[in-house]
Design a protein around this nucleic acid. Structure first.
Lengths: 231, 231
DNA sequence: TCTACGCTTTGACCGCGGTCAAAGCCGGCC
DNA sequence: GGCCGGCTTTGACCGCGGTCAAAGCGTAGA
């Protein structure tokens, strides 16, 4: 049990920010961090609360949500294993972080983590690069949210999920089967639409023969060209 | 003329990234940089081109636009004086950068600038903080694009612009008059709507008495409460 | 001062996607 | 195995905001 709490056997040791540290440095960071498990739906941090923690996601999927005062919500980011979570250098968190599946994290108190950052230029540079990448992604999704039709949003989302499910490689030409990590409602929250429209679009793609659905989560991309087809 | 090309009298010397450098370091950076003036509508960098330059905006306003293959466009970011522009650590630029007004920049070739960043931890940290702030802003705008009504988008935008025009301070309670830096078309590109809808919303706010319009650019926020009013 | 061009406003119309409602499906738990 | 609750699907309807079209303005340049 204790053994699973060290960096040595950490599943994301070589892909998270920590990859920039040698074993000695990792020891020091390890002393600072603690593991935390989140159940599905559990909230890690609320928007508006003090930004007290940050860390690396080890397993599971998290969502970052923004909301209006009257309760409308939008998922503004998803975090996957090895992703960095949190907001260094901020007083308050701007977004709520919630577990979309059971998840495990390696968390650090924000202030000492910032100090580690100062002492480890390579780690800070890696974080800068990741933050730039996240910014590019957020901006690309601004285009999608504002200008794509419901059909385009859903097909784009499915293609993205398939990319991730197949290890982010160029997808093989054949059919791809995987489980969606999100419910219909969460897909709607990501895409800026309603549950009903997401469902209708999926039904349309299914009857077109581009995909097949298996239960609430399972999906097979049958024909990528058909999926992309503008009709 | 030459004199205006040095950092000593730079208008954003103390508010841009350079504020983290002492005079000596600034000299070195100065040797790397060159000034460039952009006319209204001129493009600094095209999406898809190699990411070759970055720099600081000295005066004017720039827009960052994303577009779909079939030509739909969305402004995903605006840059104001002292803002950093460009994308270090990226091979290709993801977005097109265009001058919205006449603008002046201090530009650096990307590769040597990255090396300066490596040698100046404080500047790198400042850039990290700015990038986090930009990410927060982009995500907040994702909520707005996806979930706000046309009326809410326009009033929010006007309030943002008024904040900026009055020096980002808490606005005085009285009326505020200023010039919008964007055309109706650009406002529509920012808000993810059409020119016509932007115009109709402004007309509605005018007839409600919340604002007055003077020419294409001039605007007065008369009654902030009325402006915010949900009706 | 007049002209011309580009931006803005206004109007009429329509379709996409949201809303409201109800039925269906599936998985978990007793 | 059966029941229950939550997620999903489907249907009917409607309104917001987009589209297409034309008229108004304002500014710049001759």
């Amino acid at each position: 049990m204790e053994a699973t709490n060290t960096c040595a056997d950490c599943a994301v040791r070589d892909s998270a920010l920590c990859a920039s540290l040698n074993d000695g440095e990792l020891m020091a960071l390890n002393a600072l961090g603690r593991r935390r498990k989140l159940a599905r739906g559990e909230v890690l941090a609320w928007a508006g609360d003090d930004s007290l923690i940050c860390g690396n996601l080890i397993s599971g999927v998290l969502k970052l949500t923004a909301s209006t005062p009257d309760g409308r919500e939008q998922i503004v980011g998803l975090a996957y294993p090895a992703d960095f979570v949190g907001r260094p250098y901020a007083g308050q968190a701007e977004f709520t972080v919630t577990a979309v599946s059971e998840a495990e994290l390696c968390l650090f108190p924000r202030a000492p983590f910032e100090r580690v950052l100062e002492d480890h230029a390579r780690m800070e540079r890696l974080l800068l690069q990741r933050t730039f990448a996240a910014l590019d992604e957020a901006r690309a999704r601004m285009l999608a949210l504002a200008r794509l039709s419901a059909a385009e949003k859903v097909t784009g989302f499915l293609l993205d999920m398939a990319d991730r499910a197949t290890g982010c490689r160029a997808m093989p030409p054949g059919p791809v089967t995987f489980d969606l990590p999100l419910t219909r409602g969460e897909m709607a929250e990501v895409l800026g639409m309603t549950i009903e429209t997401v469902s209708r679009q999926l039904t349309r793609l299914k009857s077109k023969g581009a995909i097949t659905l298996a239960g609430a989560r399972g999906i097979t991309i049958r024909d990528r060209e058909l999926l992309r087809g503008r009709d």
